[in-house]
Structures are given as C-alpha cells and as structure tokens.
Amino acid sequence: MVQAREQFENAVAIFHETQNRLGEGMALGNLGIVNAETGRTDLARQNLEEALRLLPAKASIRPRQRAGRGRCSRP
C-alpha cells in the first residue's frame, strides 16, 4: 500500500501542475481510498472531500468502451 500511496501522491502533484482537474480529482479519490484502507481516516476524508470539490457532478468514472472491445462475442 505504501507504493500505491506514493504513486497516487505523485499523480496528484502532476495533475495539479498541469491543471488537469479531472485527473487530480480521480487521483485524490484513489489516494483517499488507500488512506482509508490503511487507517488514515482523517487524511482519507480530506482527500475525498477535495476530490469531490474538483470533480464535476456528472463526471463519468467508467472507462469508455470502444466498438468491439470489452465484450465477449459468442457464436
């Protein structure tokens, strides 16, 4: 989990620097989950509240599906 936390912290910094609010919000959300799972509940709450502030209300967090991908085709 330490490595995951470090990766998400780096991602937050990069997205913040490049003014990518969606990326920063997603990274903060993931960081909040890691912090919650490792008992850092106060920090998790801060991360998740900041993520909610940055993310648009109608943002889709599902990956986009491309035609013919992500589906199992059977004869």
Rank of each mutant, 00 (worst) to 15 (best):
M1P: 00
V2R: 02
Q3T: 13
A4I: 10
A4Y: 03
A4L: 06
R5S: 07
E6D: 11
E6I: 04
F8R: 04
F8N: 03
N10K: 15
A11D: 10
A11C: 12
V12K: 01
A13R: 08
A13V: 06
I14S: 08
I14V: 12
F15Q: 06
H16D: 14
E17R: 06
E17C: 01
Q19N: 15
Q19G: 03
Q19I: 09
N20L: 05
N20I: 06
R21S: 12
L22T: 13
L22R: 15
L22Y: 13
L22S: 09
L22K: 14
G23M: 09
G23L: 11
E24C: 14
G25W: 14
G25T: 08
G25N: 13
M26Y: 11
M26L: 15
L28T: 05
G29I: 01
N30P: 12
L31H: 01
L31T: 05
G32M: 10
G32Q: 06
I33S: 13
I33H: 14
I33W: 15
I33N: 15
V34F: 09
N35D: 11
N35M: 15
N35S: 13
N35E: 14
N35W: 04
A36L: 10
A36W: 04
A36G: 06
A36I: 00
E37F: 06
E37W: 14
T38F: 09
G39P: 07
R40T: 03
T41N: 14
T41S: 13
D42W: 04
L43E: 15
L43F: 09
L43V: 12
L43G: 05
R45Q: 15
N47R: 09
N47I: 01
N47P: 08
N47L: 03
L48N: 10
L48R: 13
E50K: 13
A51M: 13
A51Y: 11
A51R: 08
A51Q: 02
L52F: 04
L52R: 01
L52I: 02
R53P: 00
R53Q: 08
R53I: 02
L54Y: 01
L55V: 03
L55I: 08
L55N: 00
P56D: 10
A57T: 05
A57Y: 02
A57D: 04
K58N: 13
K58P: 00
A59T: 11
A59H: 10
A59K: 12
A59Q: 15
A59F: 04
S60M: 10
S60H: 05
S60W: 03
S60Y: 07
I61Q: 08
I61V: 09
I61Y: 08
R62H: 11
P63N: 04
R64T: 03
R64A: 06
Q65A: 01
R66V: 07
R66S: 05
R66Y: 05
A67C: 02
A67Y: 04
A67F: 12
G68Y: 02
G68F: 00
G68L: 00
R69A: 04
R69T: 03
R69V: 00
G70A: 10
C72F: 04
C72V: 02
S73Y: 06
S73N: 02
S73C: 12
R74V: 07
P75E: 00
P75S: 07
